[in-house]
Amino acid sequence: MDLQSLAVILDSALRLSVPLLCACLAGLWSEKSGVVDIGLEGKMLIAAFAAATGAHASGSALIGLMAGIGASVAFSLVHGFASISQRGNQIVSGVAINMLAAGLSAIVGNAWYGQGGRSPALEGQARFNDITLWGTETIAAVPVFGPLFREVVSGHALPAYLAFAAVPLTWFVLARTRFGLRLRAVGEKPAAVDTAGISVPLLRYAAVTICGVLCGIGGAYLAVAQAAAFLPNMTAGKGFIALAALIFAKWRAWPALGACLLFGLLDAGAIRLQGASLPVIGTVPVQAIQALPYVLTVILLAGFIGRAVPPAASGIPYVKER
């Protein structure tokens, strides 16, 4: 494989991993605080819809991003209200959010635009354009690394860079700050946090809000950067794959980046392999290739990653004794 096709595959892997990474980090924040969120998928979807709508209406991708984040955070707070204040079942609430987002985006989209749930195509400033990182041309002169940097690292849209920046930020906040310590504690043992004089609900609401912001970025990336419109069910299970990546990464930020890049790479490989003829096996059916990331997920989760212990209190509403 020559350098050029390697660069294309890696670039494509990076692009495909962005929504996964957003959702995975979103899930990390939520679960670290003790709130299980299987509604990542729904939140990304509603964010994608809101972002496309906002960008279309305003003609500004940035406003689209804000709209996406706003919609996603609103859904997060619904999940938070159900699981933190009302101490409801977090799985049920998450499923409800997924169904609500899928239905709402399709029906409202159809009512507004009459294109079978699609939003009108976004053009010009209504779309995030690829950013050429400063100094790219200088570095491009360096053999091998230079072109790779230009093709792979540079030339992505703003939400993608936000997503990658969120990795060190997440790590730093969780590991090194007061807020992070409290958040880790509340996901393991909320009673200890409560008796230390810190509000459990406040911490958890903060965490689900961050979760909403990250899902919003992911959704906006899908509709306003990767594609140029909202398509019904355009998240296509990425919110669930992200949950798998989260377990694979054992709820840690840097490994989450690794897991999402791996899934992105598989996706990119699958796209590239479509229709290609492989030695010995011949042409592989497209469906088999597309199933690869999912098969890998099952295999990884089936025990190839060792023990993955979730935060002890995740999924359990906090109730004072009695």
């Binding site: 007061r178 310590l181 880790r184 230390a196």
Partner: peptide, 26 residues
């Protein structure tokens, strides 16, 4: 408390500091 209010995966220091961290950065 009878049932300890300790966060088991955290260190002794982190448990002692929890709620009395003395600043936004640890």
């Amino acid at each position: 408390h009878q049932h300890f209010m300790l966060v088991e995966p955290l260190t002794v220091l982190e448990n002692v500091m929890l709620g009395a961290e003395g600043g936004a950065l640890l």
